[in-house]
């Protein structure tokens, strides 16, 4: 029990530490490997030249995924945000011929692409627990150097974010949190923030690493899994939907 929001990790913002509910997935959840592949595919195609064409398809995927996990708010936010970004991209230059507006419009075009990818990323973050993600990466034969360090990264992220909030609280109580002071002495502000953050995080990391080492983390190249990840009906459904969307996009592009 700690006052300053502490590492009860309660105060972790929604979009960060990849938390997830139960440790064991149900039959109708997508295999994390499929989710990662989907995200990678979206990221690569949309950011490539000509990638704008695939934005609507990715948005549809994002909304469908949000609906399957009953995240109604996200199902609404994704298309609304995308529409706003698209409007800024296409309509802003028409308002006045100033280059500044043009630059904002170009940035909005970039944001539109980020939103399309972000919709899929958000689903992954909310439904795949670090444990399952790690198991999936192992199953995909990612080298253990990355799965071990990556698993620790995912595990420790929420702890540090809570720690960040606590240090920030401590700074406010000492009168070090004022914006004016930070602008006058930015390097000093960075010092006041990072020194306690490193000191307290590394201390709590010590327990974590000791316990993980004693319980054999990284001891074998290929650990086993309580529930080995397996492709199932959900993955088939996702692949089918994505195939239809890609085909539609190609046809649509050809028609224009």
């Amino acid at each position: 029990m700690t006052v300053a929001r502490s590492h009860t990790e309660r105060a972790v913002p929604h979009h960060v530490g990849l938390p997830a509910a139960a440790g064991t997935p149900g039959r109708w959840t997508m295999d994390p490997r499929t989710a990662v592949a989907l995200l990678l595919a979206a990221s690569i195609t949309i950011m490539a030249p000509g990638g704008l064409w695939f934005v609507p398809a990715a948005l549809v995927v994002g909304v469908l995924l949000a609906v399957t996990e009953r995240a109604w708010r996200r199902a609404v936010v994704i298309p609304v945000a995308a529409l706003a970004a698209a409007a800024a991209n296409y309509l802003l230059p028409l308002a006045a011929p100033w280059p500044v507006l043009g630059i904002v419009a170009i940035t909005a075009g970039f944001v539109l692409r980020l939103i399309a990818i972000g919709g899929i990323a958000a689903h992954l973050a909310r439904t795949v627990s670090p444990t399952r993600l790690t198991a999936a990466l192992r199953a995909a034969r990612v080298p253990s150097a990355f799965t071990v360090s990556g698993a620790v990264l995912l595990r420790f992220m929420p702890t540090i974010i809570a720690e960040t909030a606590a240090v920030w609280d401590a700074m406010r109580l000492r009168g070090l949190g004022g914006v004016g002071g930070m602008l006058r002495h930015p390097l000093l502000a960075i010092e006041y923030f990072t020194v306690p953050l490193m000191a307290s995080s590394l201390r709590s990391a010590e327990d974590l690493s000791a316990s993980a080492l004693l319980r054999g983390l990284g001891a074998r190249k290929r650990p086993t899994a309580m529930h080995p990840p397996r492709f199932g009906r959900a993955d088939l459904a996702v692949v089918a939907v994505v195939a239809v969307l890609i085909a539609t996009t190609v046809v649509w592009r050809g028609a224009l």
């Binding site: 253990s144 150097a145 071990v148 360090s149 990556g150 698993a151 620790v152 990264l153 595990r155 420790f156 992220m157 702890t159 540090i160 974010i161 720690e163 960040t164 953050l197 490193m198 995080s201 590394l202 990391a205 974590l208 690493s209 993980a212 080492l213 983390l217 990284g218 001891a219």
Partner: peptide, 16 residues
Amino acid sequence: PRDLINIGIFAALYLA
């Protein structure tokens, strides 16, 4: 394993 765990911890610290 110790090195790998440390790398993960500092990667999280860096990102935060």
